[in-house]
Write a protein that binds this DNA or RNA. Structure first.
Length: 637
RNA sequence: GGCUCCGUAGCUCAACUGUAUAGAGCACUACAUUACGGCUGUAGAGGUUUAAGGUUAGAAUCCUUACGGGGUCACCA
């Protein structure tokens, strides 16, 4: 018997080879479709008969019986079959399944392609903004990107994990300016630093970014009230005209429209603030490498990076290569200028550079401002080109970025293509949905952002409380227990965020994420710990003879065999959720088996050893799957 | 408004990309266990897959329209 080729594949081959005998014609390979056998029906493998009905010119039942008889003749692992409406349900004998189990047992990399056997792929994720501490959305991003990288490795790819750090631009100048202006001096005459405040660096900088926004809005409000009181001194006439025009247009409008107009007035006023003017001046100085500004910039960035490092470590993610926008934007600018000469882009009379994408159903897009400074898109072009320079063998870049940027990436990839980069079509935007909270949407302005560090702490603490209450902690050191709580808390969090299809918007319920029942990380971790304990108590697994399998055992082997297919599927779809769903199914089946079938107390040694080996391989696949989604499994809990 | 994504049990999610009676978990109801780890298992109840048409042997899935929701349309990133 051939144990290397799956039973489905064997059936497929037989049908293709003998199609002329069976059907009288050569059949298309795509007509052979398998699907999962429904639980209510007898059988292990299901072949869909409908596609063959025409060729055989008979009813689905007759066709099914004909094909079934033929297959049974050819394959001795087929025990019996049954035709239900258009489905041929084939039962495979126990010997086949046990052989399969033995194949899994001896394969240390079961489910994986041999490492580095395929092309190199770059996976970008995280991509933070140095102004803002990481939040709940970044957790989904980081876990997703990291997991996809692991899954691609499992599929044999070489993977370069990367992030692009958004460390330049007007927004960065805002927090620098705010710190410079508003940070109080302590008794030693120093401004606030992570050292003298004890604040995490990213949190400190984030604080000043918020401070800027606060002061900025206050100033804008003052300007508006000046205007409303008819005080237009110090403002250019064009602004005054615009303000009057907007105010007049409010006449007779509904509430919503008035709010829109008010926002426009606010924007107008914001442009007139000294704070924004100073921030803009700072950006110009930065681009001119003014020493003082540059020093402030590097100092504050170093605070942020050391803060991020702590957070990444807690998350359990890492990177092979970092890109900084401060390095790539110049290249982006050069490319745009080159593209302008080639006629890909055009210049407006004010000197700004654009691309016209209206023929592709998109809009015009700005690439360089009239003052010559770059925008987000320019930087992304530079970064992409830079990456292909650094890694000439890249077969693709995966950008893990939220779906609010769908349009941006559509445009980016199109521009790269128009610039003549053939690799542009290998760029893929791994777009994921927003994370909602039961209390509603996260909004930084309303302070409803859930901080990543806080959330991780909370989850670990709760895991600690639950473990103290229900865990099996005898003989564990305090340190072991802390590690365990981290494993459980972070496992729950990661699993919760990754079990949902990445593309979909999802609801994050903090309480549910650390729930130990249901489709959760700890539920799966528990199954692992329990099997581990079972194996330890067994005193070793002896070789055994084949026996007739019980339904529960057969079910588990089928799920185990599917694992390699699941890994491939997850790689193809860039979806950790595929892995999570499969492992959950496996664990549920294992629990059913465990409940229904005795193991250690089983007297038949063949049965006992088979069940132990089965359990051991379930544990192996749990561990392997969980690793792919970045979750650790505890030996005991 | 243009473009785009989405709408499945009370709630959170599945459904192998078109196939059998649309599945899980939570919550709810009723059970099981002298036990190899009860963070378990079994059973029940809960659905016109937003609506109306269409395509076909077959539709939650594809097409059209409507309704409802998100995102995006910056010389922000």
């Amino acid at each position: 018997m051939n144990t290397k080729v799956s039973i489905n594949e064997q059936i497929r081959l037989i049908l293709i080879e003998n199609s002329e005998v069976l059907f009288g014609i050569k059949i298309d390979e795509n007509l052979i479709q398998f699907q999962k056998t429904r639980k209510e029906v007898e059988g292990d493998v299901t072949l869909v008969i409908f596609p063959f009905v025409k060729a055989l010119k008979c009813s689905p039942i007759e066709a099914g019986n004909k094909i079934g008889d033929f297959l049974k003749e050819k394959l001795n692992s087929i025990a019996s079959f049954e035709v239900v409406s258009g489905f041929l349900n084939i039962s495979i004998n126990s010997i086949y399944w046990i052989e399969q189990l033995k194949v899994i047992e001896v394969d240390p990399l079961f489910g994986f392609d041999s490492p580095n056997s395929k092309s190199t792929v770059m996976v970008e994720y995280s991509s933070p903004n140095t102004n803002k501490p990481l939040h709940l959305g970044h957790l989904r991003n980081n876990f997703l990107g990291y997991s996809v990288a692991e899954i691609l490795k499992a599929n044999g790819h070489k993977v370069v994990k990367t992030q692009v750090i958004n460390d330049r631009g007007i927004h960065i100048c805002k927090s620098m300016l705010a710190w410079d202006k508003f940070s109080p001096l302590n008794d030693k005459g120093e401004r606030e630093t992570p050292e003298n405040t004890g604040l995490k660096g990213d949190k400190l900088v984030g604080k000043y970014y918020v401070e800027f926004d606060k002061q900025f809005n206050a100033e804008a409000k003052d300007i508006i009230s000046l205007w409303e009181n008819g005080d237009f001194s110090n403002f250019p006439s064009s602004i005054i005209e615009e303000f009057k025009k907007l105010t007049d247009s409010k006449e007779g409008k509904d509430e919503k429209a008035i709010k829109g107009i008010d926002d426009k007035i606010k924007d107008l006023a914001k442009n007139e603030t000294t704070l924004l003017r100073e921030a803009k001046e700072m950006l110009v100085k930065w681009e001119a490498r003014d020493p003082q500004v540059y020093l402030l910039w590097t100092t504050m960035n170093s605070w942020v990076y050391s803060g991020f490092d702590v957070t990444y470590k807690s998350m359990g993610v890492d990177f092979d290569k970092l890109y900084y926008e401060s390095d790539t934007f110049i290249l982006g600018k050069d490319i745009v200028i080159e593209g302008l000469q080639k006629g890909v882009f055009f210049k407006k009379e004010d000197g700004s550079v654009w691309i016209d994408l209206t023929e592709d159903g998109l809009d015009e897009k700005l690439l360089l401002r009239s003052d010559g400074t770059t925008v987000y898109m320019t930087q992304d072009i530079g970064t992409a080109v830079d990456r292909y320079k650094d890694y000439s063998d890249l077969s693709g870049i995966i950008y893990t970025v939220g779906n609010e940027q769908d349009y941006h990436f559509k445009v980016l990839f199109l521009i790269l293509k128009k610039l003549g980069y053939s690799w542009a079509e290998n760029c893929f935007h791994l777009s994921y949905g927003m994370v909602d909270l039961p209390s509603g949407k996260m909004k930084s302005r309303e302070g409803t952002v859930v901080d990543a560090d806080d959330l991780m702490h909370e989850v670990i603490d709760k895991a600690g409380a639950l473990t103290a209450e229900r865990g099996h902690l005898e003989g564990m050191t305090k340190e072991d227990i802390n590690t365990l709580c981290r494993t459980i808390g972070m496992g729950g969090l990661k699993y919760y965020l990754l079990k949902v299809d990445p593309k979909k918007r999802m609801m994050f319920n903090p309480d549910e994420s650390i729930e130990l029942n249901g489709n959760t990380g700890p539920f799966i971790q528990y199954a692992y710990a329990r099997i581990n304990s079972l194996i330890n108590r067994s005193g070793g697994i002896q070789s055994y003879n084949s026996i007739e399998l019980k339904e529960e055992e057969r079910e588990i082997i089928k799920l185990l065999i599917e694992y390699p297919t699941v890994v491939k599927e997850a790689g193809k779809m860039y979806s950790p959720a595929v892995i999570a769903n499969h492992i959950y199914e496996l664990v549920k089946s294992f629990n059913q088996f465990y409940q229904a079938v005795p193991i250690l107390i089983e007297e038949n040694q063949d049965a006992k050893n088979l069940r132990l080996e089965l359990s051991k391989n379930v544990a192996k696949v749990i561990k392997s799957s969980m690793k792919l989604i970045g979750v650790e499994v505890p030996e005991r809990m």
